[in-house]
Design a protein around this nucleic acid. Structure first.
Lengths: 228, 228
DNA sequence: CCAAAAGTGTTACTGCTACACCCATGT
DNA sequence: ACATGGGTGTAGCAGTAACACTTTTGG
């Protein structure tokens, strides 16, 4: 290797694209920055990688700071390095997305950080390159949801077939046929149908399901795409 | 945001997984390290991000240093941050993979850096977390090759149907039926069949094809997977 | 004339898409 | 009794997988 004389020590940030689902729309959590630079503008939640941390831990720590949640599904998206992405310093940032059950997100924390949920198709201009990060994260989520059962991370533990369908419709911005959706999903054999019904949306009530990781592990993984 | 008191300036490295195809196998380029730490062990080619560079430029610069090639397809894989991944310093590294035509790779440079091509299914132990990087890069290549016509980056400009098939067989470690492969590929309408034949592998000679980016751009992208 | 690779088409099957009616229940 | 959402099956279609023989030509 040649000597890298210009090698530079820099700050490595972690920014989190927090996705949630409110029953109708796929949402992203943004905060109104309470500090400079760009105070008062919308931004992703983020922070800096610390000495004793790996990126995944930093992402989890930051997510916890802003949502109070632990043990959340997160996935690395990419690392962004434009020279002037932060005007004050050379900061490279690794983006992670998180999938949370929007109802577990503490209202209190939301107030504390002036956080708000925005529809993924319609969020305000963001500072720096955070808009690109959201776009990249969404793309990754869409792809990932095609091969792995991660949709459940966005729902309560128990959910109806209808909720699940609406979720996937929101993720891919499509409309699906409920008969095809339901038979396809059931053919994967990773849902356990419960005896309970959710009566909040109809008089008849809809059966609740639960994602069952054991069933998923047994299940033959030869069909690689969910192609709902 | 809380004050990040432990925020740390660190070195950001870039490591490149250079893929090549020798006509039979998918290969990865490794160098025998000529410097400490871990002198004499096998390693990916890498370097440090410099002050005036974005990651993509650093990756291209490093690739050029070791192969002499310019204007090469590269794609970010992920950023690796284990605390002691480099025993001497806290170094975080972003991995990129590159797809090159193995025959354009200068033998001279190969000698200079004690570089060698290894079959992707059978490469030696690597320093640090470079083995994980190769695994992650291969996984990404396999996925990407399913939705984008990147295989051509690994072949000479003109290639036979047979070469293309062998390439995809090597990427996915499968065997394909040549009739199905050829009709599927031709149905995508992004190959231009030339009048020339390659007579090096048979008396009859095999027609040469060329990937045509214009045809690809016109072509309806509704079929998102190549599913060869 | 023979060996070796190139080139090509058909059939069965599987999975996807499209589509409509009855059910259960609270008011 | 009716309005509302829940739940289910089938038939046509499209794309995939499996499969074998003829062509070309250098030696």
């Amino acid at each position: 290797m040649y000597e890298d004389l210009n090698r530079e020590r820099l700050l490595l940030a972690v920014d989190c694209i927090v996705f949630g689902f409110d029953g109708d729309f796929l949402k992203v959590l943004l905060i109104k920055r309470g500090f400079e630079p760009e105070r008062g503008k919308w931004s992703l939640v983020g922070g800096f990688l610390q000495t004793d941390e790996v990126l995944e831990d930093a992402a989890a720590r930051i997510l916890n700071q802003y949502t109070g949640l632990d043990d959340i599904y997160m996935d690395q998206v990419a690392t962004f390095s434009k020279i002037d992405r932060d005007p004050e310093d050379r900061i490279v940032s690794t983006a992670y997305y998180a999938l949370i059950d929007i109802n577990q997100h503490s209202q209190k924390l939301s107030k504390q950080f002036s956080a708000q949920w925005f529809n993924i198709e319609d969020f305000p201009p963001l500072i720096f390159d955070h808009g690109e990060m959201v776009t990249a994260a969404l793309k990754r989520l869409r792809t990932k949801a095609q091969t792995e059962p991660i949709g459940f991370e966005l729902l309560p533990e128990k959910f109806t077939m209808r909720q699940l369908q609406t979720l996937y419709e929101a993720i891919w911005n499509v409309t699906l046929d409920k008969r095809n959706f339901s038979s396809k999903i059931r053919s994967f054999n990773f849902l356990r149908k419960l005896d309970e019904k959710d009566k909040s949306t109809s008089r008849k009530g809809a059966f609740l399901f639960r994602f069952d990781a054991d069933l998923y592990d047994q299940h033959d993984r030869s069909r690689t795409t969910l192609n709902l």
